[in-house]
């Protein structure tokens, strides 16, 4: 037998979470599917549930400026529709979010939920990895911030403590002139990913100043290699162009997908590298 809790505010939610460690449920679009049972019977939750989707304190999206950096702060209960409709949402994230399911689901699902579900095929996660998103975590009497790459540790696994809640996602709004998010799904809408790719980069004085390349659904977590990206910093467009075959080779060692009911390892790897190549060619022609 499991209990359900409906906290009146965030403070209440944190207390309940600390005392009973219930499973937080915001939109329920992943959890209700995961725990579905015979229709007409209760879902098969293995632990108590705390509803958080109604908590108004976390239903916001705002910009914060500190020193010279502007950060987009997405509250813990902002829905995917809220994120897609916000004018400050980075292009790749907006594209990723709009590629998820259908409007009715996006109206209920939260970005936080998508992250905490920690699916390697989570489309928003692929974009958030590339955007250096930071997860804001709170508990009774404390808070911490963890980069998304450290937050997610494996399929369905995160560093979130049983007394903690994700209350916001911070995205530094950086200059980025060449952006791509591509989802290869099982069909054109309302589809799960076979794989996804995000590329964001910017030039300064004709040289690559920042770059992030991420791949979804091709490993146990979204794949991003900061090490390989570093090798591209400082290159001019034409230098990058000459380097593309080498970059593809490098990435072919870090992209190690599997076969499953949606696609094959061979296809995932080949198409991930094709998308990378297409992006790098586009990037190299910009400088």
């Amino acid at each position: 037998m499991v209990d359900s809790y409906r906290p009146k505010d965030l403070k209440d939610a944190l207390s309940i979470r600390a005392e009973y460690n219930p499973q937080p449920l915001a939109g329920g679009t992943d959890l209700m599917v995961r725990y579905q049972s015979w229709s007409g019977t209760l879902p098969l939750f293995t632990k108590s549930v705390m509803f958080v989707g109604h908590l108004k304190e976390m239903k916001y999206i705002k910009k914060e400026a500190k020193d010279k950096t502007v950060t987009l702060v997405i509250g813990g209960t902002a829905t995917l529709t809220d994120v897609a409709n916000n004018p400050d949402t980075p292009e790749v994230l907006k594209k990723a979010v709009l590629s998820i399911a259908a409007p009715a689901l996006r109206n209920n699902a939260t970005l936080t939920g998508n992250i905490c579900n920690a699916s390697p095929a989570g489309d928003s996660i692929c974009a958030l990895y590339a955007l250096d998103a930071v997860i804001v975590i709170e508990k009774n009497g404390g808070s911490r911030e963890v980069p998304i790459m450290e937050f997610i540790t494996g399929p369905g696994r995160t560093v979130l403590g049983s007394d903690e809640l994700v209350t916001a996602i911070k995205i530094p709004l950086k200059a980025s002139s060449v952006n791509d998010f591509t989802k290869v799904g099982t069909r054109r809408a309302n589809a799960l990913s076979k794989l996804s790719f995000t590329g964001v980069a910017d030039y300064k004085n004709g040289r690559i100043d920042s770059i992030a390349l991420t791949f979804g659904a091709v490993g146990p977590t979204v794949v991003r290699s900061v090490e390989l990206e570093k090798k591209l910093i400082g290159l001019s467009g034409s230098e990058l162009k000459a380097r593309i075959p080498k970059v593809i080779d490098d990435y072919s060692t870090v992209i190690v997908p599997i076969d499953d009911q949606r696609s094959t390892a061979v296809y995932r790897k080949k198409v991930a590298l094709n998308l990378l190549e297409k992006y790098l060619k586009e990037l190299s022609s910009h400088e």
Binding site: T186, R187, R188, A189, N190, A191, L192, Q261, R262
Partner: peptide
Amino acid sequence: ADYTIPTSLD
């Protein structure tokens, strides 16, 4: 989700 049939966009 896995047995996909066409949508109006396909």
